[in-house]
Computed example of a mutant assay.
Amino acid sequence: MSYKWLEWAKKIQALSQSGLSFSNDIYDIERYEELRKISSEIMEQYTDLEMEKITGLFTNETGYQTPKVDIRGAVFTDDKILMVRENSDDKWSLPGGFCDIGLSPSENIMKEVKEESGYDVTAKKLVALLDMNQHSHPPQPYHYYKIFIQCELTGGQADTGLETKDVRFFSENNLPKLSTGRNTEEQINMLFDYFRNPNKASIFD
């Protein structure tokens, strides 16, 4: 889903961040700071975020800006998929989160599933690498790439983590209310399709 105002705000933010990171000219720095302020004002105008929150999000970033990487695990048993209920919005998502530095994608998703659901898994297949801007996620201040990895359940038991309040398996025709910033119904359906058709090639974009 495309939001032109969000696309413009993020592009302005990325340009200003790169300029502030690499410019030594005081006048250029002033211009880049003004661009960052404009991007923050756009975000404030069209979202429910307060300027202080937006400024904190943007000013904490340094260096050349690149997409952030979010990883989600697809864990199946009895034709049902594992989901966790998020503390932050009381909605459901696949276990996962931001990739940690120093860990591979497989290591990241196995860690995330364990921490958020209590289950032990082994990463088996990269199902998809998607650009969130090409899917029906709500507008967000950053640009994300989303990695979906199919995992095999190997042990453990349902147990909530610091960021989750419930752990359950759901059938495809009985999905709960989804945390759409993290995953969409279309993406969950995609994962069921790959579960039923394990020889399908991975997809991207």
Rank of each mutant, 00 (worst) to 15 (best):
I81N: 00
P105V: 07
S2P: 00
K91F: 14
K10M: 05
F169E: 06
F204W: 15
Q150F: 04
G155N: 12
C99K: 10
V84W: 04
K114Q: 12
H135D: 08
L162N: 13
F192G: 03
A128Q: 10
L6H: 01
L82H: 04
I149F: 07
Y142P: 02
K80R: 15
D159S: 15
K177I: 15
F170I: 08
L82A: 10
S136Q: 11
T66L: 11
E116H: 03
I42S: 02
E44N: 05
I149K: 01
R85F: 13
L6Q: 07
N87G: 06
D159H: 14
E44G: 00
E44V: 05
Y3R: 12
P198Q: 08
K111A: 12
N60R: 09
F169T: 09
Y46I: 00
N24R: 04
I71Q: 01
D70Q: 14
R168D: 15
D28L: 14
Y142Q: 09
Y142M: 12
I101A: 13
K200M: 14
T160L: 04
L162T: 13
R85E: 15
I54Q: 02
H137F: 15
Y46G: 02
V113S: 01
T66S: 08
N199G: 00
Y119A: 07
G96R: 08
S40V: 01
G96E: 10
T59A: 05
V113R: 01
S23Q: 03
Y142S: 09
V69K: 10
H143M: 06
S88F: 13
I54A: 00
G73N: 08
D120Y: 13
F148R: 06
I203W: 10
A158N: 08
T47V: 03
N87I: 14
S136V: 07
V69P: 02
Q13V: 00
F58A: 01
T66Y: 13
R31P: 00
L175R: 11
V113D: 01
F76T: 11
K53F: 02
Y144H: 14
K91L: 15
E115Y: 06
N24C: 03
D205F: 12
M1L: 03
G56L: 00
E186M: 07
Y145W: 14
I26L: 05
L82S: 04
S21N: 05
K165S: 15
N87S: 11
E61C: 02
G19P: 03
L82G: 02
A9E: 03
E107S: 11
Q17Y: 00
S40Y: 00
R168V: 02
Q140D: 11
V121Y: 01
D120R: 03
D79G: 10
A123M: 07
I71T: 09
L57T: 00
E186S: 09
T55M: 09
H137K: 12
N189R: 14
S2Q: 05
E50K: 12
V127M: 09
D48P: 02
